[in-house]
Each structure stands twice: as C-alpha cells, then as structure tokens.
Write a protein that binds this DNA or RNA. Structure first.
Length: 285
DNA sequence: AACTGTACCAACCGCAGTCGT
DNA sequence: AACGACTGCGGTTGGTACAGT
C-alpha cells in the first residue's frame, strides 16, 4: 500500500488551477506572505492541499518570474550547469533568476536533450556518443583482460584526487598531516571550510598522475572511501564537492592552471565536473 | 474532416531531509 | 530515540495544441 497523496486524503481539488483560485492564492500570499504552506489553503479559502498551493505559487504566480522563451545565454548556462551538476534542477534554477526548476526541467527534456542528441552528444555525460561507445568497449576489453590476469577489479585514477582524500581522512574523520592534499589544514575533523573551497596554495600539490589522468573510471577510488570513511564524512565530502562544483568554474580554473597543460584544461575540467556531480553522489548512496 | 503522432508544459506523486514534540 | 508534520526535490503523468497524413 502506497501513501495517499494529500488531495486524495482530504478529497481536495486537483488538476489545473482556475483564475479564481489563482486570484485567491495570489491575494493571500501578497497580503500575508509565504508562511506555513499547510495552512495556506484554509486561510486563502482554497480546496487545495498546501503542496499544490506552494507549487502553483513557485511555478506560476510568483511576481518575479520571467516569462517566455529561454535566451541563448540561459540555454548555454543550463547546458554548462547540467554538465556540472546533472539533474539538480533546483540548483540549476537558482542560477537563472526568474526561472523555476520545473520550467528548466521541462525545457531540458523537451528541447535541450534532443538538441544534444542531434549533435551526437550524450545528454547524460555531455560527451560525444561515439567516444563513449569506444571507451565502453575499451573498458570492457581491459576489464576482462585484467580480471583474467589478476582476478581483481581494475583500479583507475580519480578526477578529483580521491586517493589524496583517502590518505587525508582517517577512520575517525581526522585529516592526517601526511596528506599533501589537505596539508593546509591541521589534523582535525574534516571541515568543509578547509577542504576544496579554500585550498589556498595548490602550486605545491603536484601529482604526476594528474597529467596522465584517465577520467573514465573512478569507482575503485570511491569504493575505498566508501569503505573507510564514516557516514558523516561522506556527507561532508558530498556537500563540499557540491559546493565546489557550484563555484567550479573559478576554482577548477585556478586548480587546473597548475596541474594540467592548457590545451586540455577545458576537457579535463568538463570531465571532472561531470564525475564530481554524478559518480561521487551515486557511489556514496 | 478525421485520425495519429509529437511536443510542450502544468501539475501530481513519492521520497528524503528537516524540524518540533 | 521515535514519531509525525512539513517542505523541497526530481521523476512522471496527463491534457492540450499543433503538425502531418
């Protein structure tokens, strides 16, 4: 038995909103502001659940909403943000004033996704479809070969320096001083303010692996962290990476300038962002 | 004109996280 | 600690408009 929706439970109205309902909700919110959504229907005289009222306000009635087609700038921004964040529509929407997550999601599903596919780009990874196919075939062959040789799974380098993270955090959540990655921080519980966001001097962090990185596989590294870190640290890392991705353009720029040759910086940044947002979250779930 | 397929978008649904008790 | 209420999010659905046959 699934949980009943609010409208089923209370026999409330469903479906499209009438102009009268819109007016009631708009009047109520403009008079009293957004407070407790569950009490809004009653106070505004609506036969709707609070959830429905909230959605109607956010997606349609809010005065600061921008109407009409998406501009080229908005489209480009959505593409870039989706590449970095994946289907985090709310986060994407927060970077586009006047646009809602629902609107962006619809625009993505109805237009942008198809546009990318037409261009031969996979909308999930933002990489060329042909490249992904070749990579998958290559991985398939490599996996079967290495499994035959060693009986173990393949280890590959991770785009966001997870081996350094692994070194950096002990079982109790303390950063270890031996880590080149977090050596800017004293040994202490992992602190988001001292992680990715505020690495003050990356010029000292020079890992040879970073230049020859194969970004295709980070699962082995994630598994290491998954097994050795506490839940709170995992959460911290995910939060941190999310924040990091958010401001990724500048931060990655400053990082990669030191770590990668300029000719490949953009591609590496792109891959890293995609990996950050998708693989890490999945691996920690 | 009638039917079918497709695109678009508003709204719903269920889940997860947070907060107060 | 356990529970329920509430909120926010992302996936999905269903209705409508429009194009093509």
């Amino acid at each position: 038995m699934g949980r009943q929706s609010c409208s089923v439970k209370q026999k409330l109205r469903k479906g499209l909103w009438s102009p009268e309902e819109d007016e009631k909700l708009f009047d109520h919110i403009t008079k009293f502001g957004v407070g407790c959504w569950s009490s809004v229907p009653k106070l505004a005289g609506l036969q709707r659940c609070g959830k429905s009222c909230r959605l109607r306000w956010i997606n349609y009635l809010r005065p600061d909403l921008k109407r009409g087609m998406f501009s080229q700038e908005e489209e480009d921004l959505i593409l870039n943000l989706h590449e970095a964040l994946g289907n985090r529509w709310a986060q994407i929407a927060s970077q586009l004033p006047g646009r809602t997550d629902n609107e962006i999601k619809n625009f993505w599903n109805s237009s942008l996704k198809k546009k990318l596919l037409k261009q031969g780009i996979d909308p999930n990874t933002h990489k060329p479809v042909a490249e992904i196919q070749v990579k998958m075939e290559k991985e398939c062959i490599m996996n079967s070969e290495s499994n035959q040789l060693s009986g173990s799974t393949k280890q590959a380098y991770d785009p966001i320096f997870m081996p350094e993270f692994e070194e950096s955090i002990d079982f109790n959540g303390y950063a270890t001083t031996s880590s080149s990655f977090l050596s800017h921080c004293d040994a202490r519980p992992y602190d988001p303010s001292c992680g990715f966001n505020s690495m003050p001097n990356l010029t000292n962090f020079d890992h040879p692996k970073m230049v020859e990185t194969d970004y295709s596989d980070s699962s082995a590294t994630y598994n290491l962290i998954k097994e050795s870190s506490s839940n709170s640290i995992k959460t911290d890392i995910i939060d941190e990476v999310a924040a990091f991705s958010w401001d990724a353009e500048n931060k990655l720029e400053s990082m990669f300038e030191f770590q990668f040759d300029q000719a490949h910086a953009h591609q590496q940044r792109t891959y890293a962002l995609a990996s950050i947002s998708q693989e890490l979250t999945q691996a920690f779930q």
